[in-house]
Simulated scan of single mutants.
Amino acid sequence: MSKKVLITGGAGFIGSNLALKLIDKGYQITVLDSLSPQIHGETPESTSPLFKQIKDKVTFIHGTVTSREDWKKAIAGQHIIVHYAAETGTGQSMYEIQKYVDVNINGTAIMLDLLANHPHTISKVVVASSRSIYGEGKYMSKELGVVYPGHRTDDYMLKGDFEVKYPGCDAPLTLLPTDETSKIHPSSVYGITKQNQEQMIMTVCPTIGIAPVAFRYQNVYGPGQSLSNPYTGILSIFSTRIRNGNDINIFEDGLESRDFVFIDDVVSATILGIEKDSANGEVFNVGFGEATDVLTVAKTLIKYYGIEVPVKVSGNYRLGDIRHNFADLTKIKKLLDFSPAFNFDAGVKKFAEWVMQQEIMEDKYSKSIEEMKSRGLYK
């Protein structure tokens, strides 16, 4: 008998790609998804390629993780839960606080409460955690050794000084990859909710006979991601602006960096977590393991689209953003034998080829910036 997997948020970018790959491997997939207009548009049947590619291949439940009844319906008869359903915009989370807490924390709490108090057939829960829980990440100080800087402050960034600081360190800090034992100190409400999700699942599941697995995904990108959501996904945001002929405003000094991981690699790592017992009870980073700065992101996209637009390094910044982060992949390579297959340039090339086959979406980015500016979060 093939295993039955419930994917919450399974009509989203990562969830839908995972669903299709699991179907190819013989799994039976149920998806619980609210089809949020921010991701899927107002009429998902016609506006969401992600939803359309799975809707006739999975058992689909149009519902929300904030509903106890929807959870009951979705969990019935399943063997594994992959919990992706979440609000995901770092900047947006700083002012839509109740929504992020309700969906990300309360939605997870309802799932665990049902699993703890009602009969079920679940043997494993895989949760999407996030690199955002590391906050400003891990650095080496000549004076103090390994340090974990706190959130950057407004007074420094207003002066154009965007590097992280640590008390007692006069020399510049050297960025290190974050391993799974690195300090957890998120700098956004989104990061706080992902930390809470991960900790609840990793704490509760072992006490009720369920194997938990958490994946701390870095910046996931690739064919299929939403090109209309202005709140998350820097490659999508830049791509939509480039194809509309709009300029790109690079925040800070353009040297802030992220670890970009291609969707195929994320799906491969997640399936290893589903299938391997060596993943049980463990937390893993999933990334490419290299830092790429935002200015390089913009230039690489322009190269592959062949569309020249002005690129301005403005010195603007958003409160809650981190400066740098990239993953140490030692643990996932050792326990799950996972290594990413796509470097940044190869992944962006495949992403850009896909984007050029899509219709040009309305650029809503300026509206999202105005929302943050009106709340004092964008300077």
Rank of each mutant, 00 (worst) to 15 (best):
D247C: 08
E256W: 09
T296Y: 13
V355L: 10
H120L: 15
N106C: 15
G15M: 10
G89R: 07
T193H: 02
H118C: 15
S67D: 02
K334R: 13
Y139V: 04
R323D: 09
G376R: 02
S374L: 09
A19F: 12
M1Y: 09
G63D: 03
F284R: 02
S129Q: 08
Y95R: 13
I242K: 05
T193K: 00
H120F: 12
L114Y: 08
F260V: 01
T178W: 09
K72V: 03
Y190I: 00
V266T: 12
N280Q: 14
G150W: 10
M356E: 07
S16T: 02
K349N: 14
W71K: 09
V189R: 00
P186R: 09
W71T: 00
S34H: 11
H151L: 12
V101F: 15
G15I: 04
S67H: 06
D154G: 06
I237R: 07
E96P: 06
P177W: 08
K334M: 08
R131G: 14
I54W: 01
K159W: 06
T178Y: 06
M140K: 15
F326W: 15
T43M: 08
Y148V: 05
D328E: 06
V220R: 01
K72W: 09
E45F: 05
S257K: 07
T66Q: 12
G15A: 06
D337I: 01
F262L: 02
E87S: 15
I14S: 15
K55R: 06
Y217N: 03
G137I: 04
L20D: 09
D24M: 10
K194A: 01
K25C: 08
S339Q: 13
V189F: 01
G245W: 06
H79S: 13
T121N: 08
N285K: 02
T88W: 07
M202K: 04
E69M: 04
T270H: 04
N343Y: 05
R152T: 08
L114N: 09
K364P: 07
G233V: 02
I248N: 00
P49W: 01
G168F: 02
E96M: 15
M200P: 07
R68M: 09
I110T: 05
L335Q: 12
E69F: 05
F215T: 03
A346F: 11
G281M: 11
A74T: 06
G281L: 07
D321V: 12
S67N: 05
T108F: 00
K299I: 05
Y221E: 05
T66R: 11
R258G: 01
M372P: 11
I184R: 03
S93G: 02
E69G: 05
L22V: 00
T59V: 06
T178K: 12
S182T: 00
G191P: 01
K55D: 01
Y148T: 10
T121V: 07
A341K: 14
I81Y: 14
L295F: 12
W71F: 08
I274K: 10
S228F: 00
T270S: 11
L50S: 12
T203A: 03
G306M: 08
K312I: 15
H120Y: 14
A291L: 11
H324I: 03
K379Q: 14
I201P: 01
G12M: 11
A76C: 01
G10Q: 12
K124A: 07
Q28T: 13
L22W: 07
